[in-house]
């Protein structure tokens, strides 16, 4: 089980699973902030493109339109449009796979 002590960089943001393409803000973050994140054994710096409120998600790499959004190591939805690394990922640019009004096939 994931523990707080095993979470990388608990101060700013956390990536729950190495395969995730979104991270979670652990405090209110600002556009322009450079957030350090450990992904597996490497550390990356993500420059935020938007303000990210506590608990909200931002992309750790580019996600193309209709690409899968992954958190907890599992699919949580797909991109409604192209999402850039550092961008806020939320209801404006991600949808459930159950959506009946999707522009994406499948």
């Amino acid at each position: 089980m994931q523990t707080a002590q095993s979470l990388p960089d608990v101060r700013d943001a956390t990536l729950l699973n190495p395969s995730d393409n979104v991270a979670i803000a652990l405090r209110d973050l600002k556009a322009g902030d450079a957030v350090k994140l450990s992904i597996g054994s490497s550390t990356v710096v993500i420059r935020l493109l938007n303000d990210i409120p506590f608990g909200h998600k931002f992309a750790v790499r580019d996600i193309p339109m209709c690409g899968l959004v992954v958190k907890y190591g599992h699919v949580i939805g797909r991109a409604k449009r192209d999402i850039k690394a550092g961008e806020h990922v939320h209801v404006h640019n991600v949808e459930s796979l159950t959506s009946v009004h999707s522009a994406c096939k499948g």
Binding site: I76, G77, V94
Partner: peptide, 9 residues
């Protein structure tokens, strides 16, 4: 508002 975007999440 609390950051959850989809039912899957």
């Amino acid at each position: 508002a609390g950051g959850i975007s989809t039912i899957e999440e």
